[in-house]
Structure formats: C-alpha cells, structure tokens
Design a protein around this nucleic acid. Structure first.
Length: 253
DNA sequence: GGTATTTGACCGCC
DNA sequence: GGCGGTCAAATACC
C-alpha cells in the first residue's frame, strides 16, 4: 500500500475517532444533566448517539475495507492500528501455544517479541510518579476475560523500591468510572473513597496512571511500600457495572 | 552487553 | 487441589 493511501486513511480514521470522541463527550454531558431535547439548537441525545455509532461504524468500515496491514502498524503506532497489532500479538500467542503443545520441555523465553514498542510504551514507560515499571509476569485469571499483567518498579533492587501494580494490557476505548484510593500509614488507615475518574484525570498525580488505566478494562491494583516508615497503597478498580449505558440502535434510528 | 519481555515453574494461601 | 502472585530462564531489543 502506498504511503499516500496509508496517510489519508490514517487521517480519516483519526478524524472519525476524534469526532466520535466529541459526540460521546457531548452525550455524556447531556446524560449527566438529563438534557436531551435539543430545543436550544444543540444536538439531541438521539442524534449524538447516532453520530457516535456512525463515527465508529465508519472507522470500522475503513479498517476492514482491506484488512489490517501490519506494516501500517509499525509506521503509525496509533491506537487504531495498535488494535490491529493486537491481532499480531494474538497470532504470536497462538504460535507460542502451538510450540508449547509440540514441546513439553520448558519453553520459557521462547517467544517472538513484537517489533513495535506499543506494549513497551504502555507498560514500562516512566510514569507520573517517580517509578518506571517493568513487567514481570502475566496470568490468566479465572472468570476474567483478559489476562492480568504484573509490574514492578524497575528500581526494585538497586533502590529498594518494592512497588508493584497489576493490570491487563488490553486496549479499551472506555474509561474507568470509579477509582478507589487507599492510604495506609503506620497506624492511620483512611476509609476508601470513591471518586469519579474525571476528577482524578486533572491531577498530575494521575496523569500517567490514566494512560495505563485506559489501556485495560478490568482491574488494576497498585501497591507501594518503599519506605520503612510509610506505606502507601493504591487500589484501583474499573467497574462499569454501576454506570452502564446501553445503546440500542433500533431505538435510535 | 544491558535491559525488557515472555512464559512455564514454583510457592503460598484458602 | 485450585488459584493468584512471583521467580527465573530464554530470548528480543537497543
């Protein structure tokens, strides 16, 4: 595929996604304020929801028009193409399973790492806190759709950083609804408080966590005990069950 | 060569 | 014994 075509497709995809994001934001605002009649000239809930659906349908249509070209993934590194890249990963994963089935010996380390650094960017880039994270394990969790990844501070040994965190490195378009924060001091334990993710997203403290959190749909748990005298833990949960909004196209069109 | 990732093995808890 | 968390060997990447 030529660079020109790839570039125009990419622009179209980004445009559609940005538009969809904008519609979703407006829709969220309308839902939050129970406004939806559009009498003031603004788009109605129905219209916005239909626009959101149209944007994503358009995006999917472009993406599937001639399949996912893996070369595009490496060139762009965009989220949309990263979704295609996950297909590559799953292929690798199935390949790994095949290898495992064909050889019962210890096959640790026998893998093909993805050429792009999508995964590395997500899991080990230095975060807003002072830590950079290194993945040390991944596990299929029972009754969970996604595997859980385990991360720890890269300076675990040389600087005594014992921080760890968990999460599933699966791309999700949704954002977490509720976070719970735990603060544990020597003899002071605060009650977990629930806050809207939006409130936290503005804080620098959570800026990088947001990037990580957006990347997986189920559960993340951060824990940190770097100091002998102070122990701080973060428990973070993405739970859509309390705030699910269903869209049924039949009711919108 | 150093560092990061993958993944089967191992271990502790319930 | 099952499950989740961690270890560590093998390998990829820079």
């Amino acid at each position: 595929m030529s660079d020109v075509v790839v570039s125009s497709k990419k622009k179209l995809l980004i445009k559609e996604l940005l538009q969809g994001q904008e519609y979703a934001t407006q829709l969220k605002f309308l839902l939050k304020n129970h406004v939806g009649l559009g009498s003031d000239g603004s788009a109605s809930v129905k219209e916005l929801a239909a626009n959101v659906l149209r944007s994503f349908s358009q995006t999917i249509s472009v993406m599937t028009s001639d399949g996912c070209n893996f070369d595009e993934v490496e060139e762009t590194g965009s989220l949309v193409f990263a979704l295609c890249n996950d297909d590559v990963k799953s292929e690798d994963s199935s390949e790994s399973k095949k290898r495992l089935l064909s050889n019962t010996k210890d096959r640790r380390g026998s893998y093909k790492r993805r050429k792009t650094d999508e995964t590395r960017t997500i899991v080990s880039k230095t975060t807003g806190d002072i830590h950079s994270w290194r993945k040390y394990g991944q596990k299929e969790i029972l009754n969970s759709q996604f595997p859980r990844s385990y991360f720890r501070c890269t300076r675990k040994h040389d600087q005594g950083c014992r921080a760890t965190k968990q999460g599933s490195p699966i791309v999700s378009s949704e954002r977490p609804i509720v976070k719970q924060e735990y603060l544990i001091n020597d003899d002071i334990t605060t009650t977990p408080r629930s806050v809207l993710a939006d409130d936290l997203f503005d804080a620098n403290l959570w800026s990088d966590f947001k990037d990580f959190e957006l990347s997986k749909p189920d559960t993340s748990v951060y824990s940190c005990s770097e100091s002998q005298n102070l122990e701080i833990g973060f428990g973070v949960f993405s739970d859509f069950s309390n705030d699910l909004v269903y869209f049924d196209e039949r009711h919108l069109l």
